[in-house]
Design a protein around this nucleic acid. Structure first.
Lengths: 175, 175
DNA sequence: CCAATCTAGTTTCATTTGAAACTGTTGCAA
DNA sequence: TTGCAACAGTTTCAAATGAAACTAGATTGG
C-alpha cells in the first residue's frame, strides 16, 4: 500500500480534512506560548537565584503571605502543583535554607512552612523582576486588552477544568 | 539566624511586597491553563489512538499537507518541537507504521516523511475530535471574544518570542 | 480502646526529558 | 581534490517526572 513512487515532493496546498491547522489550534497555541514564557522565566530564576519554577512558586505564595505558615498540602493547592512536586521542591529548599519547617502542634503530620530570611530576601528581589517580565510581556496590550485577557483566561480555565476527564489527577478540590 | 520561636502560626494577610499574587501572575496562569488543556488532550489521544502529543502534532502537520513530504527538520519547525523530540516521535511512529520514511535523493541527510494509510486514517478520525474539544473549550466565548483571543495570543507570542533571546540585561527594569 | 481507615507527606522505580556528544552527509574554500 | 565547517538526525547519559507504594500520624466505628 501507498508505494513511494506515487508521492510528490510538492503538491497543491489543499488540505485533505478541512479546518485543522496546527498553528491555529488553540491547545497548540497555548502550549507553545506557555513553553516560550516558562523557558524565559525559568532561565531568569535559575541564572539569578538558582531556583526552579516550583521553588519560585513556593517562594511566591509564602512570600506573599507575610509571616503566615502553610502546610505542604496548602502549598500544593495554592500553586497547582501535585504533592510530589511540592515535596521535592521543599526538600531542595530546606537544603538551600530558603524555607523553615516546623512540625505542627495540633497535627504532627502537617509541617508548617515559612520562608527563612534568605528566602524572604530572594522573594523581595525576584518579585519585582517577575512583575517586570510580566509588564514587558503585556506591554503591547492596552488597558482594555488587558482586561479582556484576564477575562478570557478565566473563562478558558473554567471550561478547561470542566472538561478534564481525570477526577483525581490534580488539585481541583480547592473549594 | 531566624530562630523558629520568632515565628507565628497565624498572622494578618498583609503582603510584604505589593502586587505579586501568584494566581494573577500571567506566566503562572498560562502555565496552569496549558497544563490543564494538555492533560485532557493527551488523555484523549492516548486512550483512543495510542499516540502522544508529539505524535499527534506530526500527524496534524503531515495530514494537513495532503501528499506533500516534510523532513524531520521541517516538522520540528512546524510543530515547535526540538529535533530530539521529533526524532523520537518519528521512530515510535515508524514502529507503529503511522509514517513512512524515504531517503531524500538530492540530500541524503534529509529523510522525506509522509503518513501511511494507517496514519492518514488516524488523522481523519482524530482531527474532528480535536476540533470538537477546541469548540467545547471556547464554547463560553462569543465571536467577538474569539477574535480577541486570537489577537491577544498572537501579541503575547510575539512579545514572548522577543523576550526569549534577551540577555540578562533586559528584564531588569520595566520602563 | 483498638482495629480499620484515612490523610499528609516521602520514597521508589520506571519512564521521559534535555543537553551534549556523536554519526553520517553536504557544502565550501584553499 | 582534500580538509574543514556546517548541517540533519540519532544516541547517550544524567536529571526530571509521575504513578504507585510506603511511612507515620490522625480519626472513627464498634
Amino acid at each position: 500500500m501507498l508505494p513511494s513512487s506515487t508521492r510528490r515532493k510538492t503538491a497543491s496546498r489543499t488540505a485533505t480534512v478541512p479546518g485543522l491547522n496546527l498553528s491555529h489550534f488553540l491547545p497548540y497555541r497555548v502550549s507553545v506560548l506557555s513553553n516560550t514564557i516558562s523557558q524565559t522565566v525559568a532561565r531568569l530564576y535559575e541564572k539569578r537565584f538558582h531556583i526552579t519554577i516550583p521553588e519560585w512558586r513556593i517562594i511566591a505564595v509564602l512570600g506573599g503571605l507575610g509571616n503566615e505558615t502553610l502546610s505542604a498540602g496548602e502549598i500544593a493547592a495554592a500553586t497547582a502543583m501535585d504533592k510530589v512536586q511540592v515535596s521535592r521542591a521543599i526538600s531542595r529548599m530546606l537544603g538551600s535554607e530558603l524555607i523553615l519547617r516546623e512540625a505542627g502542634d495540633t497535627d504532627r503530620r502537617k509541617a508548617l512552612l515559612t520562608l527563612t530570611a534568605k528566602g524572604l530576601e530572594i522573594y523581595s528581589e525576584i518579585a519585582p523582576l517577575a512583575l517586570a517580565y510580566e509588564a514587558q510581556l503585556t506591554s503591547a496590550l492596552d488597558a482594555d486588552e488587558m482586561q479582556q485577557l484576564n477575562l478570557l483566561l478565566s473563562k478558558l480555565q473554567t471550561k478547561a477544568d470542566e472538561l478534564t476527564t481525570a477526577p483525581e489527577s490534580r488539585i481541583t478540590r480547592v473549594e
